[in-house]
């Protein structure tokens, strides 16, 4: 971290890592805005979720937060610094983004894919060195996928592919992970496993993570923060206990049949 960054982050709210201020975004000029004045503050070192109905702008918002897309209005602050002032490769060393799972076309090995996460650290004409390979193998091991290293990604199951994508993001050695619907393609066991991995990364490495999910059962008690979107804006934010309530969810999903009940130390959510 250079001196200027240090100064600025000292003046910013020390507890907030990633902040969105009144973001708006449309895919092209003339098209309707999919994000409309969305604001949120993601605290450092937490596991957080972004929920909301289909088409509410979750994926677009997380792409804005990751710097993959630029907001038409508003600003993203990362560690107190405007995100757009970061050079893309410098940004990639601090924020890792995992898009919705895609199968891929070319039969790269899992290790080759994870090594791509090292590209923000290597120069244009260098291949990855010993340390990069060690980091990549460590990243695979951190998500219990070391055994997949030599397998071709086109042959992996959806769950295995998700783990490889997560390992690729970890290989970037980021402070912040942004995942777009990582649990969508996963079965019961792998969903729980993914949340366990993210919790462990938070506890052991202090990695902040924000995931887009429809899986409301996962949130309590594993998550620290929940943001709920409706019509392109963040309409509710807080702990899972604060957001997972009948009246809040009814407003978020525009569905008065949603119920949230606590039992066995967790919150169950369903729609009648």
């Amino acid at each position: 971290m250079d001196h200027a960054t240090q100064l600025r982050s000292a003046t910013a709210d020390a507890g907030v890592l990633l902040e969105a201020r009144e973001l708006s975004f449309a895919y092209a000029a003339g098209l309707p805005e999919v994000v409309r004045g969305a604001s949120l503050a993601l605290r450092r070192g937490v596991l957080a979720a972004l929920i909301g109905a289909n088409g509410s702008g979750k994926s677009s918002l997380i792409r804005l937060l990751g710097g993959i897309a630029r907001p038409s209005r508003g600003e993203v602050l990362f560690d107190g610094v405007p995100l757009r002032s970061l050079e893309p490769r410098a940004r990639a060393r601090r924020i890792a983004y995992v898009p919705q799972a895609s199968a891929g076309v070319f039969p790269l090995t899992a290790l080759e894919v994870v090594l791509m996460g090292r590209s923000p650290y290597t120069s244009r004409f260098r291949f990855e060195n010993e340390r990069d390979i060690a980091v990549a193998r460590d990243a695979l091991a951190a998500v219990d996928a070391a055994h997949l290293a030599a397998r071709s990604v086109t042959e992996l199951s959806g769950g295995e592919r998700q783990l490889v994508a997560l390992a690729r993001a970890l290989a970037q050695e980021p402070e912040c992970l942004l995942l777009d619907e990582p649990s969508a393609a996963l079965d019961l066991k792998h969903r729980a496993g993914l949340v366990r991995h993210l919790g462990r990364l938070r506890d052991e490495r202090g990695i902040t993570a924000l995931i887009v999910t429809h899986d409301l059962q996962l949130l309590d008690p594993a998550f620290d923060q929940v943001f709920a979107m409706r019509d392109g804006a963040v309409v509710a934010a807080g702990t899972p206990a604060e957001v997972l309530r009948d009246e809040v969810l009814a407003a978020v999903y525009a569905d008065e049949h949603v119920r949230a009940r606590q039992a066995f130390g967790r919150t169950f959510v369903w729609s009648e």
Partner: peptide
């Protein structure tokens, strides 16, 4: 030849390439 590294990442998927710092 200069684009080889970017193409390597784009071949995986565009959004991932973008998130890794490729324009």
């Amino acid at each position: 030849a200069l684009m080889a590294r970017d193409l390597h990442l784009i071949a995986l998927d565009e959004e991932t390439a973008e998130s890794l710092g490729v324009n």
